[in-house]
Every structure is written in C-alpha cells, then in structure tokens.
Design a protein around this nucleic acid. Structure first.
Lengths: 97, 97
DNA sequence: CGCGACTATGTCCGATATGACATAATGCGT
DNA sequence: ACGCATTATGTCATATCGGACATAGTCGCG
C-alpha cells in the first residue's frame, strides 16, 4: 500500500495491518457504481427486448416513467434497491450482473 | 394465472397477456428480502472469520456499531446499497450471493 | 457473582431516495 | 413541416434510510 493511502486510512482510525484485506472507500464506491451501471444496462435491454415503453414498465414497477428514465440513465438518485427491484420485476437474473 | 391475481393486477393497470412474464410484487419483494438476508449472512461470516468486532468493522464502513448490528440482523431499515457497500468493504464477492 | 468486551435494540433528526408532475427533447411516420 | 409517441430532465413534498447516541442484553472469565 502506498504511503498516501495508508496515511489517509490511519488518520481516520484504521490500523495498518488490518487494512490490507479491505477495500478503500473510493474503490468500493467505484465498484458500486459499476454494479449499478451494469444493472441499468441489463434493465434497459430487457425492457426493450420485451418491447415495453418506460411508462408501461413503470406500472409494473409501481413507479413512474421519469424514475424508469433515471434508472436507465444511471442517475445517482437511484438506489440499488430500486435497480434490483426493477431487474426482478422484469424477470432478470441478479447473478448475470 | 388464477383469477384472484389477475383481477388484482388488471385493476391496477396491468394488461393480461403482458403480465405473465413479470414477477408479481409480492414475489419480487420476497426475493429481494432473501437477497438481503443472504448478504447479511455473508457479511457476518466474513467479519467473524476476520475476527473483527462490529465496532471495528463499522470504522472501515464509516458507519456505527449499531448499524452493523442491524445489517447483520436483517433489519428492514438497512438498504441494499449499505449491504453491498459492506460486503465490498469486507472483501466479499457479490456474485457469491 | 462482578466486570469488561461485545452485540442488540430503540430513538432522534439530518440526509437521501421516492413517486408524481410538468415540461422539454427526440424520434418517426405521414 | 406537423402531430403523436416515447424518453429525458428538473423540481418538489413525502417517505425511507443514515449515523450517532443511549441503553439493554449476552457472553465469557476471574
């Protein structure tokens, strides 16, 4: 681990020697975002392959067209919960993401 | 599809014939809960195998001991986002869940 | 038992996500 | 070009989730 990172961690209460096996916050963050984007894509693909409009899909989701648009746009205001719910509703497989 | 269910769906704007391929709300809900519980278990297991206390893990997560307890207890106030973040921080593999 | 370390549960209130709505952009057939 | 369907973007009030704190419960171990 480079010094910069170690300093940033220890200064916030991490103990060197334990830290190694853990992912830093920024890495976690980027993996989380990647995951969300993958879900977005999967959802849009499935919705399109079923020839559904965002508005119709929104009904199945019990949400709104604008939310669906945001889901597919990878809008940061969309939670993993909603993404996963959407994927399940449209019949997607969580493992494939 | 049994009549009861079809009525419940159509009455809320679903069109029979499209509905079939989609999961009902309650089924989505239960699958979502199952997913969360699986994450909970995975997190607790990994934390224990690393011999970390909830308090120490909370620091890595930049959260609090009580949140970690709730994460592991499957408390409904815990989002998928937080669960996934916790799993990533502790080095777990999302796919294994 | 008593005590310390750990975990569980409850509450508060600030932060973030939500559906709904309005409206703007885009596409597409005629 | 026009009209119509679809999708994108912005905003808002309400709901849900968040960390923090207090406190209660649990589990060894002397």
């Amino acid at each position: 681990m480079d010094k910069r990172k170690r300093d940033a961690l220890t200064s916030t209460g991490w103990r060197v020697g334990e830290v190694d096996e853990f992912l830093g916050l920024t890495e976690v963050e980027s993996r989380l975002i990647a995951l969300k984007l993958a879900l977005s894509d999967q959802i849009r693909q499935r919705r399109r392959s079923k020839r559904l409009t965002q508005a119709r899909f929104a009904k199945y989701l019990r949400s709104s067209q604008s939310r669906v648009a945001k889901i597919e746009a990878g809008d940061p205001s969309v939670s993993l919960d909603l993404l996963m719910r959407a994927l399940l509703v449209i019949g997607g497989d969580p493992r494939s993401v």
